[in-house]
């Protein structure tokens, strides 16, 4: 049982672990990138496997249905064009009013669509990886959203992939604003460990008058998330620390449990 080779193996593995853990962050992220590339064949196979049923379904779709879809898309296109014309008119009016009032013009945010390719295998982190990286112009701390609301922010970037830390993770705090008459402000922090749809809105004023169903949006404070992105709705509120401040549970707009595609916001 107490053979020297047993302790030799233990020592060797211990050294490897200690060396890896003591490497600087930029070196470990490079190493992670290199090791992650070993899995590229599996990612290729997985995406091909996902694409195959869709291709098969496309090949057997009847012509009549395709024509109906084209017709529907044309109608949608016409509708969107008219909406775009109206929006352009509103934007012009907005610009004129800003000029009259001497208000600073808001820079429009650009969007880039990304596919969620994997989730964190550990239960104590809430992160996902997306298929955009530095080659697509991504950098750390860019906000990530879906059509429903805020998802999180980019936490690390490699050439072809990026890690997104989701709202509800301990490393993603968002300054938020409740859309009520008092415009109460707080910070979104991690909520429960099992329900990914609930987060806590904390550090609200003790006088905050929150009601279930009130919308919570980003406040724009902190310079990472632009103002006004929907986060969720208030579920309930309670006084904490002997009434020192108020805390509320917020149900997120975006369904973080089934993310497939997300948008990265560029300033």
């Amino acid at each position: 049982m107490f053979k020297p080779k047993n302790y030799l193996a233990l020592g060797a593995v211990l050294i490897v672990a200690v060396v890896l853990l003591s490497l600087p962050t930029h070196v470990t992220s490079r190493l992670k990138r290199a090791v992650g590339s070993w899995f590229l064949p599996l990612f290729g196979l997985a995406s091909a496997g996902q694409q195959l049923p869709a291709d098969l379904a496309d090949s057997v779709l009847p012509r009549r249905e395709l024509l109906q879809q084209i017709d529907q898309l044309r109608r949608d296109n016409q509708q969107l064009k008219s909406q775009a014309v109206q929006t352009a008119a509103i934007a012009r009016e907005n610009d004129q009013l800003r000029t009259l009032l001497n208000w600073q013009k808001q820079a429009p945010w650009k969007l880039k669509l990304a596919k969620v390719i994997m989730r964190d295998p550990e239960n104590w982190w809430r992160t996902v990886q997306i298929d955009l990286g530095t080659r697509d112009g991504l950098r750390e701390n860019l906000p990530v959203v879906t059509s429903s609301g805020l998802v999180g922010r980019i936490s690390s970037v490699s050439f072809t992939r990026s890690q997104v830390v989701l709202i509800g993770d301990r490393n993603c705090r968002v300054s938020a604003l409740v859309e009520n008459p008092a415009r109460d402000m707080g910070v979104i922090v991690a909520g429960g460990t099992l329900d990914t749809s609930l987060v806590d809105l904390t550090y609200l004023a003790s006088s905050a008058n929150l009601k279930p169903g009130q919308n919570v949006v980003t406040s724009g404070v902190g310079e990472i998330f632009p103002k006004g992105i929907p986060i969720g709705q208030v579920v309930d509120a309670r006084a904490v620390e002997f009434g020192l401040y108020t805390e509320a549970r917020v149900r997120l707009c975006a369904n973080l449990g089934s993310l497939e595609q997300v948008w990265v916001l560029f300033p």
Partner: peptide, 25 residues
């Protein structure tokens, strides 16, 4: 056993927000 510990740990940490090497030991 050593190979599985080292490679399995590194592979798992690669896809996770864990520091690289934490799963080895």
């Amino acid at each position: 056993v050593a190979l599985l510990g080292v490679l399995g740990g590194i592979w798992l940490d690669t896809f996770s927000a864990n520091p690289l090497g934490i799963s080895i030991l």
